[in-house]
Amino acid sequence: MTLEQELPPDPAAVAANNRLGVTLQRGVSIVLIALGLYVVVQSLALSYYTPVGPGPGFFPFWLGLLLIALSAASVIASFVSKMPVVFEDMIIPEPAASAQMAINFVMVGFFALTVVPLGFVLSMFVVLLVLLLVNRVHVLMALAVALGGGLGASYAFSNWLHVYLPPAPYGALSAIGL
């Protein structure tokens, strides 16, 4: 793998990274405040209390308020506290690492989209092949692992454990028992 990276020794870069981290932490807290507001507003449409205890809207209402309070408090605390905040990793990875993360992410989405229409074996074969090639595994090795992984898992689950996995369309792979 060529993506190995060390934390940059440059103290200015580390300080900048920590500042970015604190800013983003506040950002997440603000998103949580917004989420809390949404939940509170939505919960108003649900009945709050019934003759035998809290109704469907009771807990969402109070949880929403609580989330707003806690997130607001942590935003305020981040301005008040003088304790240095340290982040282990670079918040924004190097472009190559970011790209690889994105491809991993997209391929899981590809699996979700195609597992039913294409069947498990074909869908997983494509996912594995792409991920292996992106990781710069040799083409032959990648083909072997992708085939072995997709077919192997499918065999183990369908034929051995009798767990249903979506088959390939038009019985394409029925000749080999899948």
Binding site: V116, P117, P166, P167, P169, Y170
Partner: peptide, 12 residues
């Protein structure tokens, strides 16, 4: 519609 696909076993 996606779920419906789950049942697409029969080729005929």
């Amino acid at each position: 519609a996606v779920l419906a696909g789950a049942c697409l076993i029969v080729a005929g």
